[in-house]
Design a protein around this nucleic acid. Sequence first.
DNA 1: GAATATCCTGAAATTGAATTTCATCATCAT
DNA 2: ATGATGATGAAATTCAATTTCAGGATATTC
Lengths: 149, 149
Amino acid sequence: MKRLLERIDREILAAGGKRSRSRAVVIEGFFRARDHVTIEELTRSVRESAPWIGAATVYRTLKLLERLGYAKELDFGEGARRYESNLSPHHDHLVCRQCGTVIEFEDTEIENLQDLVTRRHGFHPTAHRLEIYGFCRICASGESAERVR
Amino acid sequence: MKRLLERIDREILAAGGKRSRSRAVVIEGFFRARDHVTIEELTRSVRESAPWIGAATVYRTLKLLERLGYAKELDFGEGARRYESNLSPHHDHLVCRQCGTVIEFEDTEIENLQDLVTRRHGFHPTAHRLEIYGFCRICASGESAERVR
DNA sequence: GAATATCCTGAAATTGAATTTCATCATCAT
DNA sequence: ATGATGATGAAATTCAATTTCAGGATATTC
């Protein structure tokens, strides 16, 4: 984690940016937070230890991390976007409409078929999004206790 | 087309709704418009023949069509949502980031693999979205003339 | 270690799509 | 015709996201 933060720091400097206390707190908070956080959730969380931090800074910092390739923006159609760290390999998402749980999965076969489709249309892909919405095992079984989010 | 509009009319009546001139214009405009329109585009278009129609009515009418199963809401991350008619069979989208062209494709193999994935996680799918972003044949070849949208 | 250019900040203002409110009008059932 | 209720357009509101702005912090140059 320390090494990661230092590396990001160096990249920001190399790109003409400067260090800042607030940004450091947000970046570390982001990597420590559970994945798929909203800006609002992350803001609330970093403010516990650094209450002066404004939401605008959190927005700005996550855009920055996205530009540097360390974060990915997600949109599960909830109104607010979510962010995940981009350290783990590519994957897609199962999103439970009841409890909000997000299950990540990886399927190289699907990816291969996607490549076939794009090739068939002479299309040059740069990114894709695949989300499957529905009910997770627990919620589908009716045991659904409470809404997590 | 006439039969379709009449059928929708009947369904609205059956559900306790009433007819209205504005709504009829919007619905017909929607099915006549090219696919994947934004509310703003559709509003502009219906106002050519019915300038009194407000944007709120277009929003409301498309939500209604969605509820009845005749329209689908799309979000290509452009800020504004798009809508497509839900008459043709299920398909996914290739979205060109240069010219905005949307290519529809259908791939039952991908769908099957998706089912496998969900089953593997005990997940009960209700919907999914798969979009591949990149550059269409024309834009990728550099001939890209102008931005259509 | 001062000077300075420039970046970063938090608060507040702004944007823009989407939704809601509200007074009025239109449509359906009787 | 009449009454009940749905639908309308304009305006107000919501809400996430972005931008503005004046002040503060940080790197760089000497």
